[in-house]
Structure formats: structure tokens, C-alpha cells
């Protein structure tokens, strides 16, 4: 069945043929996972590969390669700290990096709406070039389509990327082990709030800029420093909470985080208070979480600081329990962290 659950709206009264895709199916939450699991993975993906990983690991001519793709539909196209172009390049670079792969080649596909200003397209393309250069990746092929006015939102971009894995580490949720420490490479939620604020016309002083950044350099630095990385995951839609819940489910481990240790900037905190958001679920584009054996923690923290990251230890993997995420609250109690069912919306209640 495409959408799990039985008696909800649109399922008891209507046949599945009448169900429609909603925005929440792309929101990174539970609905999106149902769609991916029940439709795409079941029908499309070769069972040999783990399609829920950030990238597929393939071999060709003796080389171990990572291969991934991602599409970008951000609104607005330009936001504080980036634009759809840099996002499209680094989003794919980061998916490769999360497999421990050094990004090599990228493809770019544009779907452009009739009437879109060429000057804006030029800005986006220049930004892509600069982003690729900074990440050490080369854009080698592409495609262009134009759709009628009203059938797109300015421009949509798809990128795909190939990276090479030249180390023996297996970076995979299956290696998450009891006692592992969980770190993040910086404060969370700035991308989601920056994009939302420029869409809603909120102003910040000092301005909140997206955390958008290429993550290949910090990951390569960790690997070169000999850190025995067990697992990596970039925090994108759905935020830290969703990434951790996915990893808890994939690894079968209980992940325990401490609310007090989760880095959130003052601006993001205030925006979340006003809009009724939980920063744990706000989107990021330059943040990742890493799972490491405790013996490697000091090396990892020093290595990340040397590449200008501000890493924080946010929790640890429990040696017991069930596959879920628990958070120790500010009041010292413990609660479960769940995925959201769709995107967070400003609320008054």
C-alpha cells in the first residue's frame, strides 16, 4: 500500500487511486519516508543497494565509488548565505561526503520557467561554479529544459555526483555501536530559519545566514586524522531530530541526546519561540552528525576545530534499549524524539 495507515482522511472514504501527493510528502518527515519505502524502494531500487543511504556505493574497475543525486526547488532562489546554485552543488557534494567519498564529478540539470530573467540565471550559474571550485568537484555534463510560464517556480535544479572512496573505513549506520559519542559540527537550524525569514519578510539583527557549506573538507580531515568514523549523516530537511530517528531505526540502537548540549544560536532560538518551531526539526545544509568511538573524540574535535567547525558532543549511543531517540530535557527528564509528519508551519497555538 502506498500510504500506510487505514482510517485516516482520504483513505477510508477514497480509494488509493484518488489520493494525492501533498507538500508534506516532500517535507522530510514520516510521510516522505512512507512514500520512499512503499513506492520507490519497493519498485525501483536494486535490492543489492541501500537506497536510504546518502549515496550508493558502487565499484568500477577496482575503484570504490559513491554515486548520488538530488533536486533543488528552494523558495526563495536567493537567501542570506546562499542561493539555489550553491545549494545544488554542495547538497550533492555533501551526500557524497557522508559516505566518506571525495567528490569528483557533478552533472547539472536545469528546469527553467519561461520568462525567468537571464541575469538571475547567470548569478546562479556563477555561484554554482564557485561552489564546485571550493568543494574541489568538477561539473562535467548537464541538461536544460524550459517549461511554460506558470509550470515551474523560476528554476529547479537537479545535480548528480560521483565521488571516490580511497580509504578502508566503512561509514554506515550498521557500525553505530553502544558507547559511540554523537557530535554535530556546529549550531543547528540556521538554514531553515534564514530561508523561512526571507520568504516571510522577517528581519534579523544581526542577520541570520544559512549554514550552507561544503562538508567534504571536514570529513576528509577526519578520515586523514585517522578517526574511526562509524557513521555520518548530513542534517537536511527534517533537521537533527529526523536524521537521528532515521539512524536509530537503521542501526537498531537507542540514541540519547542532551537538550542542553545542542548548539542553537540566539537568533534561531528566538525565531523558533515566535513561530512555535522546535529547532530540532529545522532544516540545515551545512551540518552533519558523526558517530565515533569515545577514544577518537579528542582527535575528532581538534581536527574539526582546525577546519573552522565548532563541533559539539550532543549525546551517546546507549548500550540497551530499543531503536529510538531519547532526549534529556532541560528539566532533567527524558522524552522520546519522533519524526514530524510534515514540514513545520508557523502556529499561534
Amino acid at each position: 500500500m502506498i500510504f500506510a495507515g487505514s482510517n485516516g482522511p482520504g483513505s477510508s472514504q477514497h480509494s488509493p487511486g484518488q489520493q494525492k501527493i501533498m507538500l508534506a510528502h516532500g517535507g522530510g518527515g514520516r510521510l516522505m519516508h512512507q512514500l520512499i519505502d512503499d513506492l520507490f524502494i519497493t519498485i525501483l531500487v536494486d535490492p543489492e543497494y541501500d537506497a536510504k543511504h546518502d549515496a550508493a556505493i558502487c565499484t568500477a574497475g577496482g575503484a570504490k565509488l559513491a554515486f548520488t543525486t538530488d533536486s533543488f526547488v528552494v523558495d526563495p532562489l536567493f537567501f542570506p548565505g546562499g542561493d539555489i546554485g550553491s545549494l545544488a552543488v554542495w547538497g550533492t557534494v555533501n551526500d557524497l561526503a557522508m559516505c566518506g567519498a571525495r567528490p569528483l564529478y557533478l552533472s547539472v540539470g536545469f528546469i527553467i520557467e519561461e520568462g525567468f530573467a537571464i541575469e538571475q540565471l547567470q548569478r546562479i550559474v556563477r555561484s554554482m561554479r564557485a561552489a564546485a571550485d571550493r568543494a574541489g568537484a568538477r561539473i562535467v555534463t548537464g541538461d536544460t529544459k524550459v517549461v511554460e510560464f506558470g509550470k515551474g517556480h523560476g528554476v529547479f535544479i537537479n545535480t548528480a555526483g560521483i565521488g571516490r572512496i580511497d580509504h578502508g573505513l566503512e561509514i554506515n549506520p550498521a557500525r553505530i555501536a553502544p558507547g559511540d559519542v554523537i557530535i554535530v559540527n556546529g549550531d543547528i537550524g540556521r538554514h531553515g530559519i534564514a530561508v523561512m525569514a526571507s520568504r516571510e519578510g522577517l528581519s534579523f539583527e544581526p542577520p541570520i545566514t544559512s549554514d550552507l557549506a561544503p562538508l567534504a573538507a571536514p570529513v576528509m580531515a577526519l578520515i586523514e586524522a585517522g578517526v574511526n568514523i562509524h557513521c555520518l549523516r548530513d542534517l537536511t530537511r527534517g533537521g537533527l531530530a529526523t536524521a537521528l530517528v532515521e539512524l536509530a531505526q537503521a542501526s537498531g540502537r537507542e540514541l540519547c541526546i542532551n537538550e542542553r548540549e545542542i548548539p542553537v544560536s540566539n537568533g534561531v532560538r528566538a525565531a523558533c519561540e515566535i513561530l512555535g518551531f522546535d529547532p530540532l526539526y529545522v532544516a540545515n545544509e551545512g551540518r552533519f552528525t558523526a558517530f565515533l568511538p569515545p577514544d577518537d573524540l579528542d582527535t575528532a574535535l581538534a581536527t574539526l576545530r582546525a577546519v573552522d567547525a565548532e563541533p559539539h558532543v550532543i549525546g551517546a549511543v546507549s548500550d540497551a534499549g530499543s531503536p529510538l531517540v531519547t532526549v534529556k530535557t532541560l528539566m532533567g527528564t527524558e522524552r522520546v524524539v519522533d519524526m514530524l509528519s510534515g514540514e513545520q508551519l508557523p502556529r499561534i497555538c
Binding site: E205, P206, A270, A271
Partner: peptide, 8 residues
């Protein structure tokens, strides 16, 4: 109104 750096 200034909410810790957010102006509305």
C-alpha cells in the same frame, strides 16, 4: 519589537 535579535 526586538525578540533577542529578531525584529518584527
Amino acid at each position: 519589537v526586538d525578540f533577542s535579535g529578531i525584529f518584527m
